[in-house]
Design a protein around this nucleic acid. Structure first.
Lengths: 335, 335
DNA sequence: AGCGTCGCCGTGAACGTTCACGGACCTCGG
DNA sequence: CCGAGGTCCGTGAACGTTCACGGCGACGCT
């Protein structure tokens, strides 16, 4: 007694019964009389007894898994739709999902915080891979979009090279002459450090958009406003651009709105293409064309990797597991 | 050996050291030589050892709290922005957030599933309140939007009565003559049961929109398509309606898109007002007017209730805790 | 009366980890 | 040569719950 937490023994003592009887009452087990159950429940409520989920899960040898999901932002529907897909995939197996976003800390911090609560961590994990693996304390890590290079880290990569090449080809067919790119500035945690690193999307763009297009790139923050702002800067520096590829749909929506404000006709004066494939893009005027990422496939592959890692044979496969998902163009009217 | 899980003792035996040394190696503690640490880490990796987070948290007497969040859908930005706010509020305190949505089961199922992993459960909890409390196994429940009526359940309610009254008044000022409502059909789990229950929003609407408006209500599902579909049905049955209130912004966006498709000018021929206050509504053409719900306040109040309940005095307050948040009109151009 | 059955309840022994303590060994100064 | 101090490592004892088992009345049947 005295000390800190109020345990099952305290309740048992107060109710004049044994541990096991308290357990039976709390968990709705059959071998208990209606009378004592209510007595126990009542005194438990009075004492404010709340069973320790750690002790409970440990003793019951429960197999319930929970997986941590690290996303860029919960204010970008792309990420949350991805979360929705993951939930759909894992919920039937009885797994839980813990969320975290880059807005709460850098990758290593998030992984460290999550590692105590989750059996595996998946998602967008920025930062040094070795440090991430160390912070995970043995929990499998599944990187989304970025390839994995160290043991203990696995990945579902996105094949932007082929997707963007095809996209740009088709855009040329449709009359595009000068491309521009509104690029992502990087996660907030890296903002202060001044450490911008070109994304996979940018590298693919620069490779396939033609030699003169490589310069027509502006870096903007990941938001509607960021997209709008990016378009203003891009047009100021490169008025000749007639087709702009935007890092993601959210930013593309901001760019489209800005174009409308500035009296630029989309797609006649300016073609706009986003990346992600948000269904919300379809309600814009004009509807937003986009390079659609199959979020269901992404989530399903990640969940599958986690499954094989956690429930598989005792020695986990040493080489990293890598799956690939290829984005596909979704032509609406903005391009 | 043999049995099931591979424990810390297995690693200790394989590495020829003791439990404690393995712990030290895994947790990066200082009192261990570089040599043995690497040895332990290596054999741990080879054996595929993954510490039990339950045992670990129990033994370490960790206070880490995690709270379960039940939402209607992760595909509706309203809910995910609410989640984002909650994350922002609780992450600094070191709390975690587990997500679940109505798409995965009914309220009682979700609460039961979450109760093993979370210390408290907040959000949109449909279903019988007594059953919910029982399923929570002593974990505090905080209902959002709906008032709480049984002990063990608390709430942050939304004052739609005053908000909708003020909204409708202002709309009349702006020329509205005949109101219509596109109403929410209820969570998917209740869909099969045919148990539609009027929402708080509908009741407030019927009370303040005038006697003839009470009939101009259509029930639709919670999605962009549902909103579009709802508008078609509403106009077919009530062509005289010149102002439509939509259950939420997502559905309102669908309704606006449908209006555009049908050649109805917004706001000249038809005023459209949503509920939620999504920032995405601002990128529509015309920008969507809405009854904005302060998601930050909602999340902060809920977190605060959980905090006082969990960390407060041993005997929790017997009467339910109730807080109130009042939605406010956000006038953009659609009305 | 004797015996099996049923309903209800209590007692050791896990579950797998960390904490507090102590001990072995080495180094170094007096 | 002895003791102080440091580095590294191992051993009981928690942590709070559930599981397996057993006990003890009451009841019904032969």
């Amino acid at each position: 007694m005295g000390g800190g937490r109020i345990t099952i023994e305290d309740v048992a003592a107060a109710a004049g019964v044994s541990r096991q009887t308290v357990t039976r009452a709390m968990n709705g087990m059959p071998e208990i009389s209606r009378r004592t159950r209510e007595l126990v429940l009542r005194t438990a409520a009075e004492l404010g007894y709340r069973p320790s989920r750690f002790a409970s899960n440990l003793a019951a040898r429960r197999k319930t898994r929970s997986i941590g999901l690290v996303l860029g932002s919960l204010r970008n529907p792309y990420y949350t739709e991805l979360a929705a897909e993951l939930l759909d995939v894992v919920a039937p197996r009885g797994w839980h999902v813990l969320m975290a976003s880059h807005e709460q800390g850098d990758g290593v911090e998030l992984v460290a915080a999550l590692s105590g609560q989750a059996d595996a961590i998946v998602g967008y994990l920025p930062g040094d891979e070795a440090a991430l693996v160390a912070a995970a304390r043995g929990a499998p890590l599944v990187q989304m979009e970025t390839p994995a290079t160290v043991p203990g880290m696995h990945a579902v990569v996105l094949d932007f090279d082929s997707a963007i090449e095809a996209l740009l080809d088709e855009l040329r067919h449709r009359g595009a002459r000068r491309f521009g790119l509104i690029e992502f500035a990087g996660p907030p945690a890296s903002a202060g450090t001044g450490r911008y690193r070109p994304t996979h999307r940018r590298r693919a763009y620069e490779r396939f958009a033609g030699p003169d297009s490589a310069a027509a790139v502006v870096v903007a923050e990941e938001s509607i406003r960021g997209g709008a702002d990016g378009l203003v800067r891009l047009r100021a520096a490169h008025p000749e651009v007639d087709t702009v590829l935007v890092f993601n749909d959210l930013m593309a929506m901001g760019a489209m709105q800005q174009a409308q404000l500035d009296g630029i006709a989309v797609p006649d004066d300016l073609r706009v293409v986003g990346v992600d494939g948000l269904s919300l893009g379809a309600v814009m005027t004009p509807p937003l064309s986009t390079l659609s990422i199959d979020r269901h496939a992404l989530a399903a592959e990640a969940a599958d990797i986690v499954g094989t890692l956690l429930d598989g044979a005792e020695p986990p496969p040493h080489p990293s597991i890598v799956r690939t998902v290829t984005p596909r163009p979704l032509w609406r009217r903005s391009a």
